[in-house]
Design a protein around this nucleic acid. Sequence first.
DNA 1: CGTTCCTCCTGAGAGC
DNA 2: TGCTCTCAGGAGGAAC
Length: 283
Amino acid sequence: MPELPEVETIRAGLDRWLPGRSIADVEVLHPRSVRNHEPGPDHFASLLRGRTITGTARRGKYLWLPLDSGDALLCHLGMSGQFLLKGADEPADKHLRVRLSFADDQPELRFVDQRIFGYLDYADGGADLPASVAHIARDPLDPLFDDAEYSARLRRKRTEVKRSLLDQTLISGIGNIYADEALWRSRLHWSHPVAELTEEQVAELLGHIRDVLAEAVVQGGTSFDSQYVNVNGQGGYFSLVINAYGREGEPCKRCGDPIRREPWMNRSAYSCPTCQPPPAATR
DNA sequence: CGTTCCTCCTGAGAGC
DNA sequence: TGCTCTCAGGAGGAAC
């Protein structure tokens, strides 16, 4: 259930376990989970058998495992995807979609995904950056993220600030929760037009985005390492202090007024009506 | 061309 | 209880 911190937590957990291991077998239990691989599940499995995982990588919410062939096993967790490391003798999880076993007697890697919005794919030549991830912007925790370029690009858009935060081609890794949290910290309403943000406001927003993501990464990091085998990437999430998301009717931690929920894009936007007033019409 | 919005799934919880 | 409705941390691509 992944935004950047959850995906990063999973990546870090996998990175302590997978590099150097050889894939012995791949079992695809639901074809939709590998739907982007045109030749089909059997071909997908055959490409992976015998390959050695050489590392782990992430951009935004995309995760991939570089292989000794120079290709990569690409993964997006969608809304409900999880990676679990479990013993082969443990019972199948309810929504187990793909199972990868390794050459030795080690735990297997399971891809579990209730809603099947997530997927695995074989990325030809994608060890450094899979082609299907190339259009995704760097995320704000990436040392090569260019703040000035982001600010200029953002302010040229004709859209609202929350929409822009969820546009992964502008800035990646942010989803509905961290968007609402960063906007709360910035005292910005979701509908604020990005073209009207000053450079200073963008810089402040970016600072809050980095803070909330980094705090969540630290929290998430504690949950993944209990037992490598029983890992559920979602665990640490709820220890983060949430100020807006999901708090409809509860008091704003700054001013005490009840947090409001507004329908937004077939989803929800949470904000403080006092700290985050809708922008005044400018024309 | 840029921006908006529908759709792909399964399941939980609320209300009747 | 069982039905219907809404909602859920995402993103590609059709529609405008």
